[in-house]
Structures are given as C-alpha cells and as structure tokens.
Design a protein around this nucleic acid. Structure first.
Lengths: 216, 216
DNA sequence: GACTTTGGTTACTCGGCCGTAACCTTACGC
DNA sequence: GCGTAAGGTTACGGCCGAGTAACCAAAGTC
C-alpha cells in the first residue's frame, strides 16, 4: 500500500507555517461570527481542522490568538493602503487611492474586517492595539491635510488638524461598517461617495472657509 | 431611641423605583469600565450597594440588564437631541443645535456613553438594539439633508442620501469617542469643529458640487 | 397586634470553557 | 534502521461567574 502515501494527503501533517495561517483564518472567522467572548477555542480549533492543544502550542492563549488576528489583518490592511497611496502624489489623488484601497480591502475581507474591529473597540485588552492602528491612520490623514494646507500658505493648530482627521477616519470606518453590512454594495462606489464628503468638506477648509456658531 | 428613626437613613429599604435607578447607574459604570463580559453581576450589585439577587429580582438576567442600560441611556440621549433641534428651524440651525446637544450629552455622560456604545457594537445580542438607534439618527440626518436639498430644487437618490448621512453620523460618533477619551476637551468646541466638517462638506453637496474619480 | 407584602440577605448549585498533562505517530537526518 | 523531534490527539482539572433556593425583617394594612 505504498500508493497510500501519494494518494490524497488528507490534510495530515502540515508544516507549522501553514497550520498557523489556517488557524488564524479560522480564528478570524469564528471571532467575527461569535464575538471574542462567545467564541470558544474548541470551535476555532475544529474549524481549523485541528485539535485545541495545537492552537495553544502555536499561537498561545485566547487573547494572544486574538491579538495575532488583529495584527495580521491590520498589517494586511495597512499594506494595501500604503501600497496604493504613493507619497509623491497630489493630496486628492493620494486620498482617493487610499480610500479606494481601503474600501477594496474591506469589501474583500468583509468577514474579517468589520467584526474584528467592532470587537476590538470594546474590550480593554485590545483597545490599545486598535487605538494604535487608528492613531497611525489619523496621523497619516492629518499629515496629508497639513501638507495641503501649507501648500496653500495656511496653517492650523495641531489639535484642530487631529480632530478633523479623526472625523474623516471615523466617517470612513462608519462607511466601512455600512459596506460590510450591505453585501450587494460596491466598494468602488462607496469609496467615491466617501471621497465626495471628505474632499469637498476638507476642500472648503483648505480654502479658509469656516463655519461659526451663531451668537445665541 | 426613637431618634434613630429620623437619624441618617443609612441606605436602607428604598423603594423599588429608586433602587432600580441606582442599579442602572452602577451597571452603566461597571459595564463601561470592564466591558460586558468582564463585568460581573456581583460587582454591579456591590457597586449599587445591594446584593446580587435584588438585581435579578428587579432587572432580570445580565443581558436584560445591559439592554435596560442601553435603553435608558439611549432614550436620554435622543430626548436631549430632539429637545434641542426643533423641526421648524432652518437646516443649519437644526444641525448645529443637534450637534451641540449631542456633544453636550456625551461630555456630561463620558463614562456612560462611549463605552456603552463601544460595547454594544460588538456583541450580537445588542448590535440590533444599537443599530436601530443609529438608524433613527441616520434617518433624521438624511431627512434634514433631503429637506435642504429640495429647498434648493435639487434631488438625490435615497441610497446616496443614506450613505452621506451615515458618514456624518459616523464622523460624529467618532468625535464623541475622541471627546470621551480627552477629558479636558470642551464639548461645545468639539461640536463646532464637527459642524465645520459636516456643514461645509454637506454645503458643497447641496450646491451641486461633486467629486469624480479621475479616469485611470 | 396578627397578616401580608415588599425589600433584602447568605449561601449554595451547576455548567462552560480555558488551559494542560500525558501520550501517540509520522517523517526525517544520518 | 533507529533516534529524535515535530505534528497531533484524548481526556481531564479547575476556576469563575450566572442564576437560584431558602430564609429573614421591616413597613404598611385592617
């Protein structure tokens, strides 16, 4: 029965690197569906086609596993965005490409993205991790705005900039959620819509327009 | 010792309505700090100055308790907003008052708001509840936009409107998070900043400006 | 002043799920 | 071919926390 060796390798004895990815895939899926707490290590293991102790052996405790998921997905996303928005393009072009890449990513990883992020928001252990990523995004956006502003000879307080950037990032995340909940929606179109809101609003600010509260 | 009767009523034998509010206060606080799962009924009870079975007697299971929190806080918030933004005002005035009321509320309930909402996003049982509230907000905002648009003789697809409204609401929630994380920040100022982004961006749309993707 | 209702407590049960100990077995180096 | 490490398993310990049973006492009520 030597034939058996070369027959269907029924998912047996895979190298560590491969198994780790499978586990992460499964973990993302299960965490997404169930939420961090309700997800059980057993289910993740089963979904990965492996038994629980292997998960512990390779990826450690439940929290560590979740962080690993967050990390992988986050890195992938960042890379997708960074790869699209070359820093030597004009601001609107950069913004547009960045948004398109972002929504493209979310569209392709509907399962992964939204829920991981929705999850991570709440629970303390991961809030930090998530906040760091968001901070990087905010920084990038703020940098773009600042750059564009300086090009126009204007300048604006740091907090001011941060807040506007925060609002833009928030709006974008919100639309990402919307996209994740509307499977029929088109990422490209969503990106265009977001660009409309962001660029027109930001554009106004760039040109020095401001709204002031009425004297009540 | 009849005097004892009129002496300090050391938190004894309070009527149900009062205790329920105390419990909800405690629950909001603990859920906020710990997150839904990590919060224990014992801790909530203790914080409310009462023992666990009372919580079960008055407010039911843990999930029901959380929903009750969500409900109370949500209602309060909606009332604060609705009370401020009278429907017969011009759109920008309504938006401004609504935003101011909203950020005022968040500023005053820092502990409660953000974390409750951050919590509710993730866990399935409550996502629905939360989505319903957000939907109401989105609808209101979309209504305002639509109203303003028609006044200008323009019209826009429903989805279009919904998406823009969604983005604005998202940006606002995001700034609310920011506000909750920056205790020194001023709600009023935050509202002004949000108004800048929203109104200038929306204003552009109102006047028919649109951004179109470059032919790549 | 007995009787019931309402506010309140202590002290448990019981189940789920994380994490691990102990134990197999296939492949590979030499 | 034989040792050894890497891939893999079953089966269990133990904790923590939701929910409950049984019981107590103060305030109204007639």
């Amino acid at each position: 029965m030597l034939a058996r060796v070369s027959s269907t390798p029924t998912s047996k004895r895979l190298p560590r690197a491969v198994r780790e990815q499978q586990m992460l895939d499964a973990a993302v899926k299960v965490f997404s569906r169930r939420g961090f707490h309700a997800a059980s290590m057993d289910e993740i293991a089963e979904d990965a086609g492996i038994s629980k102790p292997m998960v512990y052996a390779y990826l450690g405790t439940k929290e560590e596993l979740f962080v690993a998921c967050l990390h992988r997905e986050g890195t992938r996303m960042m890379e997708a965005i960074a790869g699209a928005a070359a820093p030597d393009l004009p601001a609107d072009e950069r913004l547009w490409r960045g948004l398109r890449a972002f929504f493209g990513f979310v569209g392709a990883h509907r399962d992964g993205w939204a829920v991981l992020y929705r999850q991570a928001r709440g629970s303390q252990p991961f809030a930090g991790e998530l906040a760091a990523m968001r901070a990087r995004l905010v920084e990038v956006v703020a940098g773009m705005l600042d750059h564009a502003l300086r090009a126009e000879g204007r300048e604006v307080g740091e907090t001011e900039l941060e807040v506007v950037a925060y609002a833009l990032v928030g709006a974008t995340e919100s639309l990402a959620d919307w996209l994740a909940d509307h499977p029929e929606a088109d990422p490209e179109k969503t990106a265009t819509r977001m660009m409309n809101v962001a660029w027109l609003g930001a554009g106004q600010l760039l040109h020095g327009a401001t709204w002031r509260p009425p004297a009540t």
